[in-house]
């Protein structure tokens, strides 16, 4: 179970991306996060595994508060959170297998990962996951030789290799065609159901969200403005979330995206040390 308590984030530039967001995601629930660009969706899920450092509030994952953990503890907690990215974010020049195994990095010492000598059970698990997402025969190909849909499946396998207790999914279908998008969403739903995994899915495609999600949360300007089942998402509710075609908000969205990326980069450079 994931509990967010008055989570807030203000960027160095002074833009408030999240203000006092409180949410509870019970085990096995798939929650869709919708909202205009710039509403803070991407910031919200990055605050959970602290790729973006929240400025206030608590993130409780099965009773452990992730905010305020030291470097080492944070790494151990990150293993429990699988993340799937918008443009797959696979390491393009590594093989599919290495990408899946990279989900085990938090569990193995450096020398094992460096020599690619992962424990036997990790390798079995990786093969099983590749089989599950239907890519068993592509294990030895390089990631950049795959199509978009296949890459996202590798991304899913990598997240599952972590044996996570929570999935964070950032716009999983944004760079896929409609048919592949539905296949990927269906796969995600099935997998979460099989494992009783809770998931937060950032999604900008409202019909897709209504079709697949059990619960939908609408964000606007960093605040929760809608929280309910997909049937309750009426035209009025959508207007509350997205406003009447508000182009200024769209522009601000780009700024927030850039701010989030810059912030994540800073954090990563701090971690790579």
């Amino acid at each position: 179970m994931l509990i967010l308590q008055s989570l807030s984030k203000t960027y160095k530039t002074g833009d408030t991306a999240l203000s006092e967001v409180s949410l509870t995601v019970p085990k096995g629930q798939i929650m869709g996060l919708i909202g205009p660009s710039g509403a803070g969706k991407s910031t919200l899920i990055r605050c959970i595994n602290r790729l973006v450092e929240p400025t206030g509030g608590q993130v409780l994952l099965n009773d452990v508060d992730l905010v305020g953990l030291g470097k080492r503890e944070l790494r151990q907690q990150r293993r429990r959170i699988g993340m799937i990215f918008q443009e797959y974010a696979l390491v393009e020049r590594l093989t599919v297998m290495e990408n899946v195994l990279s989900g085990r990095l938090g569990y193995v010492p450096f020398w094992r990962s460096y020599l690619r000598r992962f424990p036997a059970e990790d390798i079995t698990r990786a093969y099983a996951l590749l089989d599950r997402v239907g890519l068993l025969q592509h294990a030895d190909k390089r990631a950049d030789a795959l199509s978009g849909g296949q890459r996202q499946r590798v991304g899913i396998a990598r997240a599952l290799a972590q044996d996570p207790e929570l999935l964070l999914v950032d716009e999983p279908t944004a760079s896929l065609d409609p048919k592949t998008s539905r296949q990927i969403m269906r796969l995600l739903i099935e997998i979460c159901a099989e494992r009783g995994l809770p998931a937060i899915v950032n999604i900008h495609d409202v019909p897709l969200a209504q079709q697949f999600m059990q619960r939908i949360v609408g964000l606007r300007a960093g605040r929760v403005v809608f929280d309910g089942s997909p049937d309750l998402l009426t035209q009025d509710a959508l207007t509350t979330i997205y406003g009447e075609e508000d182009w200024n908000a769209m522009r601000k969205g780009d700024e927030e995206q850039t701010a989030a990326e810059a912030d994540a980069r800073d954090r990563i450079s701090a971690l790579a040390r």
Partner: peptide
Amino acid sequence: DARQIEAITATGASGAQVLSYGIVPQVLP
């Protein structure tokens, strides 16, 4: 590419592992 590095960081990898899985493969050629 910062996204690839972010993805490796998100798995709970240590600094040295981020270097060897996220950065080195990108600059090796």
